[in-house]
Simulated assay, not measured.
Amino acid sequence: MKTIRPEQMEQIRTAMPALSNDPAAIRQRVEMMEQLLERSFTLPGVGRKVGLDFVLGLVPVLGDVITGAMGLYIVWEARNLGMSKFQLARMAANVGFDSLIGAVPLVGDAFDFFWRSNSRNLKIIRKHLDRHHPAIRTITM
């Protein structure tokens, strides 16, 4: 098996920006993960967008563990951006609270329908990026 040299890895990162640690690539990955977790599907009859956080939350305990781990990925990416410990703790608390309440049968399912921890965390990350990396700011509607 052939190993990849560090300079080859850098060439791969340059060719595939989604794998890099620059703020624009991190923003793109976090936004995609948030959309997957919070706004992937539209519920028929209700017209409200939901994601894997709601759908997997219907599976007792295991679904909330899986979506909690996916939410913590967003926090990990925020750490890669150099966000403050306070911001990271606030984001981890959002994910923890969502997972804790979401694990309660029925009540947790209704909670996941209305409370979107990953969207809250994305808002915290966007605020940080807009302040510290204004060149990658995007216009949202």
Rank of each mutant, 00 (worst) to 15 (best):
E77P: 03
F41P: 05
D112L: 05
R27I: 05
S99A: 12
P134M: 04
G68L: 03
M9E: 09
G102A: 05
W115Q: 04
G51Q: 02
F97W: 13
I139G: 04
D64A: 03
D22C: 11
L122F: 08
L129C: 04
V65G: 04
P17M: 12
E34K: 01
Q28R: 07
G71A: 13
G96I: 04
L62S: 14
L52G: 00
S99P: 15
I136G: 04
R79F: 09
Q35C: 08
K2L: 11
H128I: 00
A89M: 08
Q87L: 08
F113N: 03
P134Q: 04
I26Y: 07
A25Y: 06
R126E: 15
T67A: 10
A93L: 14
R137C: 00
G45P: 14
K49L: 06
H133C: 11
F41L: 06
Q35S: 12
R137A: 01
A18V: 15
T138L: 04
D64P: 15
D130K: 08
I101D: 01
G63I: 05
A24Q: 15
F41K: 00
W76H: 12
G96L: 11
G47E: 00
L52Q: 02
A69C: 11
T14F: 12
N21P: 03
Q28T: 06
F86C: 01
G51W: 00
T14Y: 10
A24G: 06
P23I: 14
K85D: 13
G108I: 01
H132N: 13
S117H: 15
E7C: 05
R48L: 12
E31A: 14
D98H: 12
R39A: 09
P60Q: 11
M91N: 14
V46M: 10
R126S: 08
K49R: 10
I139S: 09
V95S: 11
K123E: 12
S119Q: 11
K49I: 02
S84Y: 01
Q35F: 09
D22M: 11
D53H: 08
G96V: 10
Q8H: 12
A110E: 02
A18K: 12
D109E: 14
H132D: 14
L36P: 05
L52K: 00
P17H: 13
R27W: 11
D98P: 00
G108Q: 02
D130L: 05
M32W: 10
A103L: 00
G108H: 01
L122V: 09
I125G: 10
M70F: 15
R126Y: 13
N94K: 04
G102S: 04
R48Y: 11
D130C: 06
A110D: 05
A103D: 01
